[in-house]
């Protein structure tokens, strides 16, 4: 069995729209996540990054490929034991803090729902204690447990969403664009908090986002996704300092800099899959170093790595 916390191998997720038309949202993606690290998944909308997260946690049933989590295969049919393993050890944080909390439940009960379902406490006091402890860690007040979601601001709601995931003490948290819906000043607060808690709880994150500057800040390793293919993966340093794939380069060039003199003259590098002449289905994975891999054909590899 693999020593990685999560091993995704050749994952495919197709959606059949009609008899003739199938959307290949994820088309053969492989990567792994080690315990306690953060893997950032970036790409534009429609690249399949959210789908990967949802397939791993089994909101979808993968079309083919294997996902192994702590040595247990979770991509096939799930028995009671596997389901319990998956649902308690892996948690998800959703994008929109306005939509992901049940408006008719009190915050304390929302956070404790996972504990209730899996009977993870002996008595009411222990349940209460667990909820209060995680709320305090998230910078929420004990009194807030009796309130309803609409009484909170966007940043606070996202904290509740994170508290609900982390109260289960998961080994892997899938964070699907957790900060995209928040204000800039609040984004930094939430990202710092997630980073602090990771140190404390030792959870690994799969951090899905399209904002590369935040991804750079939180991730140990990054995977760049385009049209359902993982085109490049490597450590944060590999991706930012030695990007190989033209799509990665165009993504990096699109990040705005907070420097007007530079920014005024800069023109983002365009990338159009149709006219680029690159066919992802022909490419194989080429390694540049132990950590840095890129999807391309042999000729492309030679062309892109030539200085």
């Amino acid at each position: 069995m693999s020593e990685h916390l999560l091993e995704v191998r050749d994952l495919k997720q197709y959606f059949r729209v009609s008899k003739k038309y199938t959307v290949k949202a994820v088309d053969g993606v492989s990567f792994h996540i080690d315990a306690g690290e953060t893997y950032g998944l970036v790409g534009e909308s429609g690249s399949g990054k959210s789908t990967i997260g949802r397939s791993i946690i089994r909101l979808y049933t993968p079309t083919s490929g294997t996902v192994t989590f702590e040595g247990v295969e979770i991509s096939g049919a799930l028995g009671a034991k596997e389901t319990k393993h998956l649902r308690t050890r892996m948690q998800m944080i959703f994008q929109d803090p306005m939509a992901c909390l049940n408006p008719r439940k009190k915050v304390g009960d929302i956070i404790a729902q996972g504990l209730d379902i899996h009977h993870l406490y002996r008595d009411r006091e222990e349940r209460q204690e667990k909820v209060y402890r995680i709320m305090e860690k998230m910078g929420l007040d004990r009194e807030h447990a009796g309130r309803y979601p609409h009484q909170f601001s966007g940043g606070q709601r996202q904290r509740i969403g994170i508290a609900r995931a982390l109260v289960m003490e998961p080994k892997l948290v899938i964070a699907d664009e957790p900060i995209s819906a928040l204000d800039v000043s609040i984004q930094a607060q939430v990202v710092n908090l997630m980073k602090d808690l990771q140190g404390e709880l030792g959870a690994a994150y799969l951090f899905i986002a399209h904002d590369l500057s935040m991804v750079k800040y939180i991730s140990d390793r990054i995977g760049v996704l385009h049209l359902g293919h993982l085109v490049e993966t490597g450590t944060t340093r590999d991706i930012f300092e030695r990007p190989i794939h033209p799509y990665t380069k165009s993504l990096l060039s699109a990040i705005p800099h907070a420097d007007p003199r530079v920014e005024k003259q800069r023109v983002a590098i365009g990338y159009d899959y149709k006219t680029s002449g690159i066919d992802y289905t022909l490419g194989t994975y080429h390694s540049l170093s132990e950590t840095h891999t890129v999807l391309c054909t042999d000729e492309e590899f030679a062309k892109w790595t030539r200085v």
Binding site: S185, S213, K216, A258
Partner: peptide, 25 residues
């Protein structure tokens, strides 16, 4: 100052913590 500081700087190596403006609006 707070707004400018809390923008992650991609041209340098990532610091350990992002600067945040404390509190909420």
């Amino acid at each position: 100052w707070g707004l400018l500081s809390s923008m992650p700087d991609i041209s340098t190596d990532a610091p350990d913590r992002l600067y945040t403006i404390p509190g909420s609006p």
